[in-house]
Design a protein around this nucleic acid. Sequence first.
DNA 1: CAGGCTTGGCTAATAGGATTAGCTTTTGGC
DNA 2: GCCAAAAGCTAATCCTATTAGCCAAGCCTG
Lengths: 187, 187
Amino acid sequence: MPRAGLDPAAVVAAGAALADEVGLDHLTMGLLAQRLGVRTPSLYKHVNGQEDLNRRIAALAVSEAADAVGSAVQGYAGRDALAAALRAFRAFVLRHPGRYAATTGVEPTGPDDPMADASRRLFGAFRAVLRGYEIAESDVDHALRMLRSLCHGFATLQGAGGFRWSADVDESFEWLIAFADRGLRAM
Amino acid sequence: MPRAGLDPAAVVAAGAALADEVGLDHLTMGLLAQRLGVRTPSLYKHVNGQEDLNRRIAALAVSEAADAVGSAVQGYAGRDALAAALRAFRAFVLRHPGRYAATTGVEPTGPDDPMADASRRLFGAFRAVLRGYEIAESDVDHALRMLRSLCHGFATLQGAGGFRWSADVDESFEWLIAFADRGLRAM
DNA sequence: CAGGCTTGGCTAATAGGATTAGCTTTTGGC
DNA sequence: GCCAAAAGCTAATCCTATTAGCCAAGCCTG
């Protein structure tokens, strides 16, 4: 029997891709094994069960989101930077609903957790956006939480099929960007 | 063997309560049956499996949320109404994390679905809040989606243990209310 | 190049949860 | 009191995660 040549990174990448395809709640060890051309128990040589797999997919997702937002923001400031960041974030979530869903409820276990580093990078990107606005130092954390809530809420609701009725969803998102910009400017 | 005297409403209520206690993903048919003093298969006389149970819990949750927001808003207008609505919504989600979690991804199947009615009531409450602001008719849907995203995002992130770092979460939420008020006022 | 250790894959077995089938008893209406 | 529907129950099935233990492949060393 030939080796499949797997390693943890390959398993996690395939798991993330599969989660995007079939939805995180339909991601099963058996399905993932099948996708990788291997029997289910073999996966346990690379990840420590489903919870561990979920953690790793989450870390990958946050890291990718940080890259996406970080590079989208490059070269912009103020409203342009805000719009670029929010659009990049939403695009990432809609493009990768499964792996993004894996991030909810996962918190870094310690400072050496790859998740912690990825989170820091993602927050750093948003924090940089806020530098284009005149916000009191004491308000920055509140503003960050607000932006995160806005992004997370909109993207997950859209991904879950909320927003059914008439108005155009992209238009709503652009409206939301304008709203956030006005609100941040009027401090 | 004495009858337990269950009916669908009792099963759903117990399921919702249990979901709040142990988390929606740890809500199991076996655990629910045990809580009700009955064997697992007996539940199937009242609900059509887990998916149906989830749907019904979701409908209950949205209905209760609509009641909570609706009555919190009574007698207020403008910023006070906005603050009351957002606080009531967040309080509901934090108080009932399990049943609220059941609502994500559940959409009404038809106009006769109890979920549809509950959703309409909840949206009606928020729509009433927006009447206290001068918003163009064409912007109302966008504003509703924004408010929903903000509430949903903040409450679910907090419930999932996001917002770990320093700043006080209640303070952030009050800041968010002020932010939303300013943004809606400055149209 | 042989031997051996580590690694990655496999089969078989265990355990838990959802669901269905089919039986039995209660209970409300006559 | 009788009967049909409703509400429980046991037993059985299926699916998924996970563990145990076996075996081959591939590398590293001599």
